[in-house]
Nucleic acid binder design. Structure first.
Lengths: 245, 245
DNA sequence: GAGGTTGTCTCATATAATGGGACAACCGTA
DNA sequence: TACGGTTGTCCCATTATATGAGACAACCTC
């Protein structure tokens, strides 16, 4: 466990021995020994007198972790079709606590790239994928999630002022009826998305997808058109999981 | 180290307790305790009475590992441009021992997908990226690499009969002059690629790229045309690394 | 229901990691 | 080029820590 904390530390960008020793309050001697072992096995990349970086074995494990989720493999073709059709960035995510966990991302062809990354976490209540996932959570818990998202700060992100709760609740109720959601620059200024939930054989929401793009490519009328399209893709994935319409 | 071996074991597809205990010849009791700890921290995904899968933290670490390689970030835009221009699958890889290690992959738009995966390893001597990397290795070592590739067996792959060494050597010498390489279905039947090496400021080969596609999209004359194109992209990436033409 | 697998717990034991320290090699900078 | 700060390398007594055996219940599949 200590070794893994060390990896997390390096992942977080602390790549000097002293810094790691401080962050974990562990003697330099111990940290050094562990770094050596991890580097020798390929879990870390070591540049002498420069620092440590995450190594190739972690790339391998990470990719395998993605492949082992049948959801990713099943959803891929549908996501690609959606990306091709819309030209925008497509996301796939699942719930992880009170957050979205991004499982897949297909970059848009419009040149500008989203900040989002596979393997990243974001507040549920303020992203397209997240709100779609919330459609599978009892509305009584929405308020908490809304509050948590408001408190969360995203490093380096340009956070817009939050939508008032009353309005948010009304919108969500509306989304629930339609079975798709909008995100109107609530997570990041200049980014809008259209999302929809993915359900499994027991009809519970297990994932969600979204199409995201810069606001200038996402006027209101286009979002309205995109709703049914995104929902149709989500349904197609759901059916691949055994869901009955 | 033992815990990491356990992760590798799960990555390799052994997801039952008994199997893991056997593979690592470790008592069931110990394996169980470790699995529990790893699952509790999110490094494994546990489905009770079903098995263990690699967890979300590994996805996160894997992605971070990729981001920490400046090479990947630098090369990305060039690779995307190449993919768009050719419509085929584009690879980026580095040398890892006697193998290629794939760092990035942009799927082609022709519908059929390559077996290759980011984080995967392949013999140097029998892939497009690998042969391009070999251009940076003293020709005296080529013979060994050629032999190793011949001995390697790839699970589930349809391996064509090897090219005789004499011919192989002649081809490589040719590639060295042109600074690009061909792979004529040597790694897998039906797949052809064109590759080129990437160099850094010290003029040593640090990576390689390739464009791969099904043979029907890769007639000889197209490959000949693609050579300079792929090489130009490789040169562009090299220049981003400080290489002087 | 039976057989095999898995999850949970306890405990004595000794393995194996710990952390302190001392020293040399190295980097950037003054 | 001399310096402070950081890093790489080694040693060793200490004890904390993981180990592995076993017993039992819960569980899945056939």
């Amino acid at each position: 466990m200590r070794g893994l904390a060390l990896l997390e530390c390096v992942a977080a960008g602390t790549n000097d021995v002293k810094g790691i020793a401080t962050r974990l309050n562990t003697p330099r001697s111990t940290v050094h020994r562990m770094l050596n072992s991890l580097a020798a096995e390929g879990y870390l990349h070591h540049v002498p007198y420069k620092g440590y970086l995450l190594g190739p074995k972690l790339i391998h494990l990470g990719m395998r972790a993605l492949e082992q989720r049948p959801l990713v493999a099943l959803a891929r073709p549908h996501l690609e079709a959606l990306a091709q059709r819309t030209g925008d960035t497509v996301h796939l995510g699942v719930t992880d606590g009170a957050e979205v966990f991004y499982l897949d991302k297909i970059p848009g062809t419009r040149g500008l790239e989203m900040r989002s990354r596979v393997g990243q976490r974001m507040p549920l209540a303020s992203t397209g994928v997240g709100k779609a996932l919330m459609l599978g959570i009892p509305p009584s818990r929405w308020r908490d999630l809304y509050r948590e998202a408001g408190e969360a700060t995203i490093a380096g992100s340009d956070r817009p002022p939050p939508v008032p709760w009353a309005k948010y609740e009304t919108q969500m109720a509306d989304y629930l009826r339609r079975d798709w959601v909008f995100d109107l620059e609530e997570n990041e200024v200049g980014v809008r998305c259209v999302g929809a939930p993915v359900r499994d054989i027991s009809n519970s929401v297990v994932a969600a997808i979204s199409v995201a793009s810069a606001s200038q490519y996402m006027p209101n009328d286009r979002m309205a058109e995109l709703g049914p399209v995104v929902r149709a893709t989500a349904h197609a994935i759901s059916e691949a999981l055994g869901w009955k319409r």
